Simulated assay, not measured.
Amino acid sequence: MPNDVASPPDQPAEAGAVAGELARLCVMLGADSFHLYRIAARKRRLVPVLDAGWPAVHALTHALPDALPNSFAERAATRQCIFWWGKEAYCALPVTSGWMLRLDCSASRAGLAFPLVGAAGGHGTIVFAGRRICGEEEMLMGIHARAHALFDALPEAQPARTAPDLPAVSPRELQCLRLTADGLTSDDIARRLGLSVHTANQYLANVAEKLNAANRVHAVAKALREGLIE
């Protein structure tokens, strides 16, 4: 691994710190932006997590999934090769190696997508996009390894973000919602998380309000549809 690709962090990082690290990798590749996605397990679709516009949302983040092939999320969840697109003249990469796969993509920028696997088994991908992306094999391997570590550094430390019109949902609100989806009652959730029943109910009421849901069951349904929980 190249010396300028840092080793994995010992402790989970805040989203802003991870964004800063990804921005540094972006510069190393000569890319203009980065876009980190989680791959929803059930429907195999890309769910935005973090991008170069943090704490806002970069305009390209919600356009990229539509520009990529329909099969991309499934392929990124089952393969660990690096995907790339763009004219070779503007994407100076070792594209003849067997661990890089070219995609048909309608995006206006060249791009690299690194599939990611979390320690708990979740899947994701980090996309770097730009007019001209350059990288030698050793550097790309180092960036891929670092991106894996950064993906692991964002377990529940980061509020979930989907479409720009949805408000951020806190990690604790998501925990309560996930446990509700698993069939736990407010009493169960309070015991599991070490909260009072009143506090657990308040978290659920807050997330239902943020998602414009009629009740917690409706909130679970909307969160599943938006990819906030699985």
Rank of each mutant, 00 (worst) to 15 (best):
H62R: 12
H62E: 12
A67W: 07
A67V: 06
A67C: 10
P69E: 04
P69D: 04
A73R: 02
R75D: 12
A76Q: 00
A77I: 04
Q80N: 14
I82D: 08
I82M: 13
W85N: 00
W85C: 00
G86A: 04
K87N: 14
E88N: 06
A89E: 11
A89Y: 08
A92D: 12
V95P: 03
V95W: 06
V95L: 09
S97V: 14
G98S: 11
L101Y: 15
D104P: 05
A107K: 05
S108Q: 10
S108N: 10
R109D: 10
A110V: 07
L112R: 03
L112Q: 04
A113L: 04
L116H: 00
L116N: 01
A119C: 12
A120E: 14
G122H: 10
H123G: 08
G124A: 03
I126H: 00
I126G: 00
I126Y: 00
F128G: 05
A129S: 09
E136P: 10
L140H: 03
L140M: 04
L140V: 03
M141L: 15
M141V: 13
M141Q: 15
H144Y: 07
A145P: 03
H148S: 08
L150I: 01
L150E: 02
F151N: 08
F151V: 09
D152T: 11
A153P: 06
P155H: 06
P155Y: 06
Q158W: 14
P159A: 11
P159V: 11
R161K: 13
T162M: 14
L166C: 09
P167T: 06
P167A: 07
P167H: 06
S170P: 09
P171A: 04
R172L: 07
L174N: 08
L177D: 00
L177T: 00
L177E: 01
L179V: 07
L179A: 09
L179K: 05
L179D: 08
T180H: 08
T180S: 09
A181R: 08
G183D: 02
G183I: 01
G183V: 02
D187Q: 13
D187A: 15
D187H: 13
D187T: 13
D187R: 13
D188M: 04
I189K: 03
R191Y: 06
R191G: 04
R191E: 09
